[in-house]
């Protein structure tokens, strides 16, 4: 139950809640929607109750025993009042602590160049161009997928069956994976750890094309610091303009049916939202207006980092 006045008073406690902490206990409440709520001990010793948010199922599954896990505060939409007021509150996200192998940074900084953006924004084109123009320093990483080959695919995918994909996942050979639920097609994508490591061994930077789950998965597997992360936006001043330019591009490339296009646009809305919500996962946000300028900008940022 939240009224504007209660929400206003809650603002006062927000700063206090905005700390990382440790989970004391948690429960998942099954009602019309299920919520995971935890009792959290914050850094200053105080305790709060808060919702646990998870952007990817992957997080939740690998963290079945949450007691004792560290959590970070995140701002998330908590409810919409009858008056239409959107109430945002602090929720907490589980950080899975991952041991990162130490390596000699003076020899070669192992990092990944990741390009994230909605379907049709030009991620594949950019990654392909980077792989060609900067072939001496960058290599595209093949994407593991369960979907069937399509006309217009240009060697960026490695096709596997559902079973093989599942097997690799169970053996822990995938650095990140995502399921894209869909009515019109079955799609799972992932990156194989070995592929990335091979590229590093050759002294090159792997270039990956990601969406929200893959990016988070990679950040968890290798650590956020090992990713030079780019967000790619379609041109347009408003969200509407961006979506319409995406629609134009998707139709023009003619790889998907109209139903699939509509579904991808639906995902695109979430993707655009993700840029805002998880700004900390991106180093640079670029607009794909002119390909030449874009590639130059990429090279500049990538070289600076190297």
């Amino acid at each position: 139950m939240s009224t504007p006045s209660i929400a206003h008073r809650a603002l006062k406690t927000r700063n206090q809640k905005n700390q990382s902490g440790t989970i004391i206990s948690y429960t998942t409440i099954t009602q019309s929607q299920s919520h995971t709520i935890a009792l959290i001990e914050l850094e200053d010793g105080s305790r709060v109750l808060g919702q646990i948010v998870c952007h990817s199922e992957q997080n939740m599954l690998s963290a079945t025993a949450l007691i004792g896990q560290r959590v970070m505060p995140r701002m998330a939409l908590s409810s919409i009042t009858e008056q239409g007021l959107r109430i945002y509150d602090i929720s907490y996200e589980v950080i899975i602590q991952k041991k990162i192998d130490t390596f000699d940074e003076s020899v070669f900084p192992r990092y990944i160049l990741a390009i994230t953006g909605p379907s049709g924004v030009g991620k594949s084109t950019v990654s392909k161009l980077l792989g060609t123009v900067c072939s001496h320093s960058m290599t595209r990483v093949p994407i593991l997928t369960t979907r069937h080959p399509k006309e217009g695919d240009d060697g960026e995918y490695t096709y596997v069956s559902q079973k093989e994909f599942e097997k690799l996942h169970k053996e822990g050979k995938l650095a990140a994976y995502t399921d894209i639920p869909s009515n019109s097609e079955e799609r799972r994508y992932g990156y194989v750890v070995e592929d990335l490591e091979r590229i590093w061994e050759n002294g090159k930077v792997p270039v990956v094309v990601t969406e929200m789950h893959l990016l988070q998965g990679l950040a968890q597997h290798f650590g956020r610091r090992s990713i030079l992360s780019f967000g790619l936006l379609p041109p347009g001043k408003s969200r509407r303009a961006m979506l319409s330019s995406l629609l134009f591009r998707l139709r023009k490339r003619g790889r998907e049916t109209e139903a699939q296009i509509r579904e991808r646009l639906k995902h695109a809305v979430q993707d655009l939202q993700f840029f805002k919500e998880r700004a900390e996962l991106f180093d640079h946000i670029l607009v794909n207006e002119d390909l030449d300028t874009l590639i130059k900008t990429f090279q500049k940022h990538a070289l600076e980092t190297v």
């Binding site: 206990s25 409440i29 709520i37 009792l39 109750l49 509150d89």
Partner: peptide
Amino acid sequence: NEKDQVPGLTFPGIFGLIAKRYMY
């Protein structure tokens, strides 16, 4: 009302937290 009322939390939820911790 102000400290425990996280959206979605119910009384079974509060005892769920207690039970989970007790089991742990």
